[in-house]
Amino acid sequence: MKVVGLHIGLLAVLFALQFVLPAYHHGNLARIMVLASYAIGYNILFGYTGLLSLGHALFFAAGMYGMGLGIQHFDLPAAPALIAGVVSAALVSGGLALLALRTTGVAFMIVTLMFAQAGYLTILYFGEWTRGDEGFVIAQSARMIAGIDLSDPTNRYFAALILFSICLVVCLWLIRSPFGKTLIAIRENEERVTMLGYSTFAHKLGAMVVSGTLSGTAGATYGLLFGYAGASFASVQYSIFPLLWVLLGGAGTVLGPFVGTLFMFYLIDLSSGITSAYMLIAGVVLVLLTLFAPQGLMGELRRRFWKGLP
């Protein structure tokens, strides 16, 4: 009960905040909620299943470009384009999973890194379609779902909140389901799970597809809400970001991804006012986290105060 209350409480606060926040932070929070959805997707594979991917930008971009190219080149309306994005992320993550899950540990990290890099370069290579690094703007007229203009700040905030709520609920439901509990067991001791009669491959495949699809949904929504798709969202940096957010917030906690994204977003936002080398902050935080707080903020909270925190 306490658990359900906590999450509903957070969503209620986020809902209420839009009426009081100044425009700048209002826009930021919409962006943070979409990026946190990406982080929730990442956390399902990294935090709960124990597989460290360095290639999630591929899934984020698969969603973004599945949606964006659908609008740009096939004149799809926004809703079917969004679905196209989600489907392409599901397909890409399933395909990569079939290959990458043949490896473990460090090899898995490098394989995901390499395929994501190949994906990024492919976007550059087909620059005629994708406009490469420069990217393309999605016209306001194409960003309408059921007559609602998603470029309007209030609607955009709502849409981001809906996406975030869906991801949060999916994550909570998943980790309380038998499937999710088996994923956690795989993280704890994979060989034992096999020797209890579960196919760990099938479970990891499922985890990677759910994780990639949520990430891709976040990518597609991001493109739709902020009206832009560009190759930089497929670069290594965008694979490192969710890792950073999840590590900071707490891997294997439901709220960790949101907390981590919120902190990191404002940390970078503040420092980019001072220096153009804002990625320095990301680097320092990564090193400090691995050294001193591998559990992250929510993980520490769970360890010290609230053992039952999901």
């Binding site: 067991a185 704890e188 001791n189 034992r192 096999t194 020797m195 209890l196 196919s199 760990t200």
Partner: peptide, 27 residues
Amino acid sequence: PAHERIQRGIAYTFQITSIFPGLSARE
């Protein structure tokens, strides 16, 4: 593969204890 043999009704307990250390005994 191992998991399909287990599904057919073989259970194996490890010589070197192999449990899920982070989960409750009940889980």
